[in-house]
Design a protein around this nucleic acid. Sequence first.
DNA 1: GCAAAAGTGTTCCGACTACACCCATGC
DNA 2: GCATGGGTGTAGTCGGAACACTTTTGC
Lengths: 240, 240
Amino acid sequence: MSGKHTNHPLADFKVGIDNVIFSVDTELNRLLVLLVMRHEEPFLGQWSLPGTLVRQGESLETASYRVLSEKIRVKNLYVEQLYSFGGPKRDPREAEDAYNVRYLSVSYFALVRYAEAELIADGVSGIAWYPLDHLPDLAFDHQEILTYGTMRLRNKVKYSPVAFDVLPEMFTLSDLYQLYITILGEDFSDYSNFRTRLLKLGFLKDTGIKTSRGAGRPASLYRFDAEAFEPLKDKPMVFV
Amino acid sequence: MSGKHTNHPLADFKVGIDNVIFSVDTELNRLLVLLVMRHEEPFLGQWSLPGTLVRQGESLETASYRVLSEKIRVKNLYVEQLYSFGGPKRDPREAEDAYNVRYLSVSYFALVRYAEAELIADGVSGIAWYPLDHLPDLAFDHQEILTYGTMRLRNKVKYSPVAFDVLPEMFTLSDLYQLYITILGEDFSDYSNFRTRLLKLGFLKDTGIKTSRGAGRPASLYRFDAEAFEPLKDKPMVFV
DNA sequence: GCAAAAGTGTTCCGACTACACCCATGC
DNA sequence: GCATGGGTGTAGTCGGAACACTTTTGC
C-alpha cells in the first residue's frame, strides 16, 4: 500500500462481510447452508448469504460475528476468513450510486451444530437452512462465494477435525462416516477401515452409551476428546 | 451484505493490496522476500511489502499485478490471494485523515524465479530481496502479513508443485532437496528417499545434461514436466 | 589416493485394502 | 427365525524409514 502520487483516482469502498455458514442434518444426511431473505434493494426478495456492511470502528471479525449472532444462537462455532471479492461491477449499487462507491466483500466460513443452532426469527425476516443440492437463486455473486466455501469445506474436512464442529456432541461412528459421505461423495474408505483408522488416532472417546435407531445392533455414542487431540494438532493427519 | 437501515454509520474504506513475493537463491540456499523502500508518509524510509491502493475501475488482481510489474520483470509467476486485513487502527493515515477513512489490505502471495526476476530500479527507489531470516523492521502490519504468507508457503510447498515456480527451469535433485530444507527446516525425509519418491511420481524429466559444482560427482539437471503432472493435479500428493 | 557429492539398492516394519465374519437388536 | 445395522479380525500388499553401498568427479 505505498501509492505514488498520480492522477489516477482511487476507488472508494464500502466493505461488506458475507458468512458462509454450514451445518449438517444428521438425520437426513444433508449438507446445509444458512440463507436469509433480502428485505431491501438490490435483490429484494431474493435469498442471500447472511452479511452486513462494516461499521465505523468495527473490525471485520466483529462484523461477521454481529450478523451471525443476529440470525442464530449457537453454542459452538468454528469461523475462519474465506476469501475477498472486490472486483468492479460486483454490486449493482455501484452503478446507481452517485459517488461511484465500490463494494468489497470479505467472506467468512463458519460451521455450527444443526441441533443446537436456534434460528432467530425476528418478525417477518426469512431465514432458513437450505440443502446444498437444492439452492435457490442467490443475490449478488453469492453463488460464487458459496462455491468457494464448499471447496474449503471439502478440503478442511479431510485434514482437520472440523467434522466435530458440525456433528452433535455425541455421535455414532456411522454418523461420522455418513457425514464424510455427504460432504465428499460416496467413494472413499469402506466403513470398517474408516472406523479402525479413526479409533486408532485416539481422540474419539467411547461414552459407553448405546443408541438404537430402528433395527440393527445399537451403536456406541462417541465424543471428540479435544485434549487427546491437542498433541496431534500440528501433525499432518488424514481423516478420509 | 444485507444491511438494515440503522443509525450506525458505515465505515468508508480505501482498499490496498500488498504482495508477499517470495523467491529462493539457489546458490546460497536462502529464502527471499521482495521489499520496497517507502518514499512517502507514513513510514517514510521504512521497508514494506510492495503494494498499492486500488484505483477506480480496477480489480484487486489487476492492482496486485500492477505493482508487481512496476517492480520486477518476471517470466514465470505464481499468484494467489492470501488474506485480508481490515481492522480499525491498522493504518496511521486513518487518524490523520479528516474523513475518517479506513484502510483495508488484501494481500497476495506470489512466487517468482530469482535468476529470471529482474528488479526495476526506477531511479532512487529502494527495492531489494531480503532473506527471511534477516528482515528489517517493516511498515504498517506488514510483518504480520509476511508471517501469514510464510505459513502459506510452508503449507503449499508440501502439497503442491509450487517449488518449481521458484526453482530455475533446470535444477538438480539436490537443489530441490535443499529448497525444501530452506523452506521447511532440516528434519524431513533423508535425501535418498526423497529422491526416490519424487522420481517415482514421474513428472521430473531428466534432461541428460550434467552439471558439476566443485568436488563430487556431477548431477543430472531435471525439468518439471507440466504435462506429466496434469493428470495428477487434483490427486492429493505429498512432496515432503 | 582421498574426500565430496550424486545416485542405487536392500531390509524392515507399519499402514492401508479388501474382505469375511461375528454380535445385538426389531419384528 | 431373519433382516438390519454395528463391530471385530485377518491375510496380502504397498510404501516409507533407515542405512549401507556404489559411482564419478576435484584436488
